[in-house]
């Protein structure tokens, strides 16, 4: 007889004194280092340019491309952008670019185009590149992908607190709603699914005009976006999300003039670190490199 599944309750969280429970409690392995070992800090590059946008709906694609190249080169200590892309991808790769089509704040098409252009220039075959969001489970390129690029705007989110890079992979599941419990805390589990595990080479969190507060059924008002003009780039999705979350939280506090916690609390970021071993969420384990425009950087 199979062992009975143990119910995880709020009290389990209270017992650990943390928002997340131990991986073993969830029946999932804690992935990561052996006891006593400490992984190196995750590098995150935040690049900003005041000229890239003047606000919601405006975008300067050429400036955006420069930001992308600058950030990636710095992230990988590469001598130039082409070398940086070569460090991440080979011409034989089959690359799925996981985008986000959410109507009010989609991944900018010009950013998708810029990435595809760089992959083509690297020698990746056009038929081995796909940009998709809701159709990824039926997309032949994604089905045979050897590499994934994860790119999406950051925003507040009704169920998960924040729409993050981690959450962007929810479309790899057949039942996204099944991850909504406890503020989508278990999103990290998706990253261990066979079609995803170990394939993500690059994460780009778009912070051009992030949404820092949501209202109404559509969870959107331009009132709660602002021209931050940034991109956050890392090979560690947890570190990138944690960095973006700090900026969103700082913006909320500044805008509302008081401590205004993101609601619900985006537990999935911390859980992705401590429970699912996907990266590092604590600022002291993140090497944050800031490039470009520094005004009102909030971090």
């Amino acid at each position: 007889m199979p062992p009975q599944k143990r119910v995880i309750t709020r009290r389990d969280f209270l017992r650990t004194g943390s928002c997340v429970v131990m991986g073993s409690l969830m029946g999932l392995p804690l992935i990561g280092q052996a006891a006593g070992q400490s992984p190196p800090p995750s590098r995150v590059v935040l690049v900003r340019d005041a000229r890239v946008t003047t606000g919601y709906g405006s975008l300067q694609p050429a400036t955006l491309e420069n930001m992308l190249d600058q950030a990636l080169t710095t992230l990988l200590d590469a001598p130039d952008p082409a070398s940086a892309w070569q460090q991440l991808f080979k011409p034989a790769d089959v690359v799925g670019l996981k985008s986000n089509v959410w109507g009010p704040l989609p991944t900018p098409a010009s950013l998708e185009d810029a990435i595809v252009h760089r992959l083509l220039r690297l020698g990746v075959d056009a038929q081995n590149i796909a940009v998709d969001d809701r159709g990824i489970r039926r997309n032949p390129v994604f089905e045979k992908a050897t590499a994934l690029i994860n790119v999406r705007p950051m925003r507040t989110h009704h169920w998960s607190g924040l729409g993050t890079l981690l959450k962007n992979y929810i479309m790899f599941t057949s039942a996204p709603w099944s991850y909504h419990g406890n503020a989508c805390e278990r999103l990290g589990a998706i990253w261990h699914k066979p079609q995803v595990a170990g394939k993500t080479r690059l994460n780009i969190l778009v912070m051009l005009t992030p949404l820092f507060h949501g209202i109404g059924p559509h969870h959107f008002s331009r009132t709660y976006t602002w021209p931050y003009g940034g991109l956050i780039i890392s090979t560690d999705p947890v570190a990138a999300d944690a960095t973006g979350a700090r900026i969103i939280q700082a913006k909320r506090n500044a805008y509302f003039g008081t401590e205004k916690p993101i609601g619900p609390r985006p537990l999935h970021i911390e859980a992705a670190d401590t429970q699912f071993g996907l990266g590092q969420s604590h600022p002291d384990r993140i090497e944050l490199i800031k490039l470009g425009w520094n005004q009102d950087i909030l971090i």
Binding site: Y56, I215, G216, P217, H218, F220, S221, R222, T223, Y224
Partner: peptide
């Protein structure tokens, strides 16, 4: 009423009125 969004209920209807920018 909060900035950008008005909601109310009446009978069996829930009504939401929001503006894309306040």
């Amino acid at each position: 009423l909060k900035p950008g969004w008005l909601s109310f209920w009446s009978d069996r209807f829930f009504v939401s009125i929001y503006t894309e920018e306040e």
